[in-house]
């Protein structure tokens, strides 16, 4: 609150000066180019290509160089990776990975699974757009019992590991699934089939 004439006139001067400078600054911004990136459809590049190279997006597993060591499964602090290994029935010396599920909905993108991987098979990509109507569709299955893959034996003489280009596999997986695809149904185990007629089996109350 002004108590002297000098303060009174000073505050008028301040008001005029702040109008002058303030209006001039906003006018100068009016004619500048906005820095907004108009995601998703008006960007100069796809946004994944504008991200830093070590961005931790969706995990990707290159099955062709996965040794089946399960180090990533053990490293995951929230158990979003599920791996099962079996012996190949045709060739008992060859083990196959029958299940390699990563729940991207649960994943917290910490990168702890990437560190212990001996071949660099599991890596973070720069993919991040995976909207799904059903949460369960965010489980990406890198192997399943119908299509198991054999574990990779590291060639000691090889100078580098033949990994496919990072991101192509997960992109193909995401593109293959419509955003509104129905999610998988995980039903409770079937009740033991009644020895009597099937009609009686239907009549039994369902398991809670």
């Amino acid at each position: 609150m002004p108590t002297t004439v000098r303060e009174y006139t000073g505050s008028i001067r301040d008001t005029v000066k702040s109008f002058w400078h303030g209006l001039s600054i906003t006018l100068s911004y009016l004619v500048r180019r906005p820095i907004t990136v108009q995601y998703p459809d008006r960007t100069t590049l796809p946004v994944r290509d504008m991200l830093p190279p070590r961005y931790r997006g969706f995990l990707e597993v290159d099955a062709s160089i996965c040794t089946g060591c399960q180090a990533c499964e053990r490293a995951c602090p929230i158990s979003c990776i599920q791996i099962s290994l079996e012996k190949d029935p045709q060739n008992p010396k060859q083990r196959v990975v029958t299940q390699f599920d990563i729940d991207e909905a649960k994943c917290m993108f910490c990168g702890l699974c990437v560190e212990p991987c001996p071949t660099g098979s599991i890596q973070h990509t720069r993919e991040f757009e995976g909207s799904q109507a059903d949460l369960r569709n965010l489980v990406i299955r890198w192997s399943d019992p119908l299509h198991p893959f054999p574990v990779y034996k590291v060639d000691k003489a090889a100078e580098y590991l033949p990994r496919v280009e990072l991101g192509t596999l997960v992109r193909a997986k995401l593109a293959a699934r419509a955003w509104d695809a129905p999610g998988p149904r995980f039903l409770p185990p079937e009740p033991p089939a009644a020895p009597a007629a099937p009609a009686a089996g239907d009549a039994t109350p369902a398991k809670p």
């Binding site: 002058w20 400078h21 209006l23 001039s24 006018l27 100068s28 004619v31 180019r33 906005p34 907004t36």
Partner: peptide
Amino acid sequence: LFLRQTRANLVAMGDRVDLTN
């Protein structure tokens, strides 16, 4: 004077008049 001040503000940041985007 005001327009000169505005121009000075614009140039001080190394920008120019650009009405794209």
